[in-house]
Write a protein that binds this DNA or RNA. Structure first.
Lengths: 126, 126
DNA sequence: ATGAAATTAATAATTATTATTAATTTAATG
DNA sequence: CATTAAATTAATAATAATTATTAATTTCAT
């Protein structure tokens, strides 16, 4: 993988976020600083970076994929109202993979745990 | 919600599955028995049924959504090679929601746990 | 039976993502 | 440095998944 300014920009912009943005959000933000960057370039680099393990693709929200610059195993909370994704810095349940293995027709290499509910901000609105 | 033959067919066909099919799979199968049923009708009814809590939409696989006629809380295993979704009939960790609540800016109402790995069939092939 | 509301098939439109391509950039090598 | 092959880009076309539109049909309470 050669260096590219655009890929570095995508990575840097994603790192500014703690809210796991989608490709189009990263694109819109980068466009302000770099009016020539292409949407396909953002998608391609997010794909490349996640394939190389530099970032994590989050596929648990219906619609667009979200991206997380933190590749450490951790959990997430999704608000059913606004769709925003928050980190859940609770202790990771390491044993789950072994527990599951007994019930599965294959080898378990990891897990993803997502909590659902309503964030405080949305609760206040209704 | 009025009765409709098409909605009943969608529900019945989904119930025949234990592998959490996508909308296009249900559509292809129904088309054989009912050559007039429309793809949009399948999508619309899967949407309606999941909004009414009669089935569960599974959004954790990149690409098309999957559907599960079993609305009881249970976990899943996804093969990273073939993308198939299996049930994981292990005990549900009820306490997780309360555990997470302390770390979350909102109210937790549920969770989804997905295990990843390689199924036996794909392991044999490589 | 009648009629308003719900539903359908067909298809257009939208959204998210990937593929194509000609031009540009990167970086190894002479 | 200059050369050049491979990687990357911007622009845009294409694809995949899903939703919206609409006129016709079906459901179901009166």
């Amino acid at each position: 993988m050669n260096y590219s300014r655009q890929r570095e920009e995508v990575m840097d912009q994603l790192k500014l976020h703690h809210d796991h943005p989608t490709a189009d959000i990263i694109f819109a933000e980068l466009r302000e600083r770099d009016p020539n960057i292409s949407l396909a370039t953002v998608y391609r680099n997010l794909k490349l970076l996640s394939e190389h393990g530099a970032i994590k693709k989050l596929t648990f929200v219906s619609g667009a994929d979200h991206f997380d610059p933190n590749t450490e195993l951790h959990y997430h909370f999704v608000c059913n109202e606004c769709g925003r994704v928050f980190d859940v810095p609770m202790k990771v349940a390491e044993h789950l993979d072994q527990d599951a293995e007994a019930f599965v027709p294959g080898e378990v290499t990891g897990h993803e745990l997502v909590f659902y509910g309503v964030c405080d901000e949305c609760a206040r609105k209704s």
